[in-house]
Each structure stands twice: as C-alpha cells, then as structure tokens.
C-alpha cells in the first residue's frame, strides 16, 4: 500500500461511524490493524519518499520558502543564517532531535503557535519515524558538509 493511501485510510479512521458506514468501518479496521505500529524504528529509505511532501518548500542545500535542512540535528530552531523565520520559531528555544522533530512534524501549528510553516503535519507515527530517520541521515550526509 502506498504511503498516501495509508494516510487517507488513517484519516478515515477518525470519522464518526454512522449506521450505514459500520460495514465499511469493519473492513477498514482490518486494514488499519496492519498499519498501526507505535514502536517503529524509522526507515530512511521510506522516509526519502515521505520527504517528497516537503520539497515544495525545503531542500537540504538551500534556503527556499523554508530553511535549509543540512545539519538540522543538534541545531537550535530558527537559526539558519539568511532565513527570515517567524518570531515564534526564533524564540521557541527548541533544539532539533528525534523527539522535538516528532512533536513539531506531527502538528507544526499546534507545536509552535505562530509558525509560518502552514502545513498540517505528518500524522502517521510510522511515516514520521521514517521521515525523521531520513532527515537524520541526509542532513548529516557528505552533500551537507
């Protein structure tokens, strides 16, 4: 199943059941049981595919609509030179690591109210773990040195 399809199914899980949708829910549920996985070691290869959702605004090498992602891990939020951050991001006192990225990428606007990253987030825990594993690998790669 493609990540996007998984995503749609997971969103559908939050719909309130109506009598007519109960049968559908039962069918969906059997799929979803297979998808639900909380303790997942991120896979950077799958994460690279998820990162395609970010490339409208980000790249590793350059500041674009969003800041560059090279050397992201261990960096203080809002500190890339030459990027015009929101005050909210600049004053967040966050240092980027697996835990802080997980919270931010799940729901950017709730995690840092006032951020200009107008993006709903990556809601699926497994997708987020894969994405973060890829961010870690690629942001420290030779391309970024």
């Amino acid at each position: 199943m493609t990540p996007s399809k998984q995503n749609v199914l997971i969103k559908l899980r939050h719909l309130k059941p109506s009598p007519t949708s109960m049968v559908l829910s039962a069918t969906l549920l059997s799929c979803l049981v297979l998808l639900t996985n909380t303790a997942h070691a991120g896979d950077p290869l799958t994460g690279k595919d998820i990162y395609n959702r970010c490339i409208g605004c980000h790249s590793f090498a350059d500041n674009r609509t969003g800041p560059r992602h090279c050397n992201l891990f261990g960096r203080k939020a809002g500190t890339v030179q030459g990027f015009d951050y929101s005050d909210a991001m600049r004053n967040s006192k966050i240092v980027w690591n697996e835990t802080t990225l997980d919270a931010f990428l799940k729901a950017p606007l709730q995690n840092i109210p006032g951020t200009i990253m107008g993006y709903a987030g990556v809601k699926n825990d497994r997708e987020r773990a894969d994405l973060i594993a890829y961010l870690k690998q690629a942001s420290g790669s030779s391309e970024c040195k």
Binding site: N52, R53, C54, I55, G56, C57, G118, Y119, A120, G121
Partner: peptide
C-alpha cells in the same frame, strides 16, 4: 509535486 503536497498540507 512539492506544491501539490504543500496545498494538501
């Protein structure tokens, strides 16, 4: 492709 995802988000 990136723009599609940006609007989805």
């Amino acid at each position: 492709r990136g723009a599609v995802s940006a609007y989805v988000g």
